[in-house]
Structure formats: C-alpha cells, structure tokens
C-alpha cells in the first residue's frame, strides 16, 4: 500500500490483511497499558480541512497507541484562513518531517491530489466530500466480521442519503470485495445520479429488504450538504426510510445495525432502536481505533 485513498486501492487480500492486523491491535487495546512502541519516532499529522470529532480523535488515538508523534492541523485556525493554498500547506507540513498525513476535506478528491503533491509521506483519506471514507468502511467490515465470523455471503442493506455519502461509496466497494451482496434503499432523490458499474441492487420495498438483511447500514441525512431539500420533510423521510421501531421488528434475530455517526435520533433511526443490542454503534467506534492502528502500521511499515 502506497497510500489509502480509496477502497478501490485494495484487493480482497489487502482488506483481509488490514482486518487481521486490526485483530492483533484489538488485543492490545484490552491490555492494562494499551500502547505499543511500534511507530516510535514516526510522525503522523491529521490535516482536517473539514471539522470532525470522531474520525480525528480515532486517528490520533490510534497513532498515539502506536507511539507515533501526532501533529494536529485544523483549517479553522490555520494559514489556510490567511489564504495559503492546500498544496503549500501540505508541502510545509511534510517538510516538518511527517511520515503520514490523514486528510479530510469537504471536496472529493483532495487526498488524491495531496498524494500527488507529497514527496515521501503516506496519505490516508480521512473522508473527502461525497467520495470515500475508506477507514470507516474497513471498521464496519471489521465489526461485522467480529460479530458474524465473516463477510462472505452476507446480505448488506445500505439505507439513507447515499447520494451525498462517502461512507456508502466505500462500503459498497469493501463489502462486495469481501463477498457480500449489497442492496441500496433510498428515495430516488438521495440515490446517486447513476449506479452504472456499481455492483449493487436497489430495493423496491424497504420493509422486504429489512427482513432479508444480515447487516443494515444506516446513513445520516446530511442536512449540511443540502440534503434537506432532497426530501419534502424530515417527517416524511422518517416515515418512508427511517428505522422505526416497527421496521426494527422486521429484522432477523442476528441482524446487525451499523451507523457511522453522528446519529440523528428520531430521523434515520428511532431512539429506542439505537439503544437495541443489535445496534453496534459504540462497538464500531471502539473498533475504529484498532482498524486505524492497522492502517497506520501497514502504511508505515512498523514491526509487530
């Protein structure tokens, strides 16, 4: 792996290797002192041009548990505000001796561009526009695999604002590469304009699809990306596409409900449903650290 920009950079063996290494780091996290010296002397910078809480904290925690030095860059209080270009910012930060850059940006493709601008840094996509969020999909796969023993042959249903979701794009690639089948369920206005080339089906009926699903991946309605105007009202959205208590009762006994967070209770998921044992949101967050440790470890060539 040169960089991690898209799940498409990985084949099945590549994803499985990350998940196996993450298993080892999940063990580390259970130790009294959950820290290993693997990346001592290495430096990881998180460059977040778009605000985020959980992804940044998760990456920084992962880097620290590997004993890497962590430099945290936030666009809101930086030279970018003074008019410096992203390219100059990246070149400046790399010049401080960074080994890896975790990049998040509200525009699709920025991590790809950054990977062309760096000389030797590894670049990790921490979420770019509507494009991809590869580590989120990896931690989702890790969580499902942990609970179900594997991904192969599972039926995954992704529900919600797929059009504006970088998580959905990465999930489709990751789950299908690992042998699952993926079905999308959303109002037409929240599906991507074209699904040509996507190895997915589109659900005709959400209730039927829920009954058949092993994994239900809920997505947040991204109001800050203008999704509000893509449905008439939140109430109508919830009635048609939300995981209400009635719909949750249609799920199979061992079905899993994932959500990348932040959840909007009462919109895409009913509050009661979010608290069911099938909803594994906090487990996803815990696993996120181990998966990101694995990605950093494999990219930076640490020694186990």
């Amino acid at each position: 792996m040169t960089h991690l920009l898209s799940i498409a950079d990985l084949d099945r063996e590549g994803i499985e290797e990350i998940l196996r290494v993450a298993d080892a780091f999940a063990e580390v996290e259970k130790r009294p002192i959950p820290k290993v010296p693997t990346l001592r002397g290495r430096a990881v910078a998180t460059l977040f041009f778009e605000e985020s809480t959980r992804t940044r904290l998760s990456f920084e925690t992962a880097a620290k548990r590997l004993s890497a030095d962590v430099l945290s860059f936030s666009a809101a209080s930086s030279s970018v505000k003074k008019g410096e270009s992203i390219r100059d910012t990246v070149e400046t930060i790399e010049a401080m001796g960074m080994d890896a850059l975790v990049v998040r940006h509200s525009s699709a493709g920025v991590p790809v561009q950054v990977s062309r601008w760096v000389k030797r840094c590894k670049v990790i996509n921490g979420g770019d526009g509507w494009h991809e969020h590869p580590t989120q999909a990896l931690l989702d796969c890790f969580t499902v695999r942990q609970l179900r023993g594997g991904i192969d042959g599972l039926r995954v249903l992704i529900v919600g604002d797929i059009r504006h979701s970088r998580v959905a794009r990465s999930q489709v690639l990751a789950y299908t590469t690992l042998g699952a089948s993926v079905t999308l369920a959303a109002p037409g206005s929240l599906l991507p304009p074209s699904l040509e080339g996507w190895p997915v089906e589109v659900a005709e009926d959400l209730d039927d699809a829920l009954g058949n699903a092993d994994v239900v991946s809920l997505l947040r309605l991204q109001a800050e990306r203008g999704s509000g105007a893509f449905v008439p009202t939140l109430r109508e959205y919830t009635a048609g596409w939300g995981l209400t208590a009635r719909r949750a009762a249609l799920l199979g006994g061992d079905a899993i409900v994932t959500h990348p967070g932040p959840m909007i209770r009462g919109v895409e998921i009913a509050g009661d449903v979010a608290d069911l044992p099938q909803a594994v949101v906090t487990r996803q967050v815990t696993n996120g650290v181990a998966v990101r440790m694995a990605v950093l470890f494999l990219l930076l060539g640490g020694v186990l």
Binding site: A108, G109, D128, G129, W130, H131, E132, R166, R169, P192, P193, S194, L195, E196, G197, W198
Partner: peptide, 9 residues
C-alpha cells in the same frame, strides 16, 4: 453520470 457518481463530485 457514471463517473461523477463514482467520484462523488
């Protein structure tokens, strides 16, 4: 189209 949908642009 197909490319914009895949690229998230």
């Amino acid at each position: 189209g197909a490319w914009s949908s895949r690229l998230g642009l």
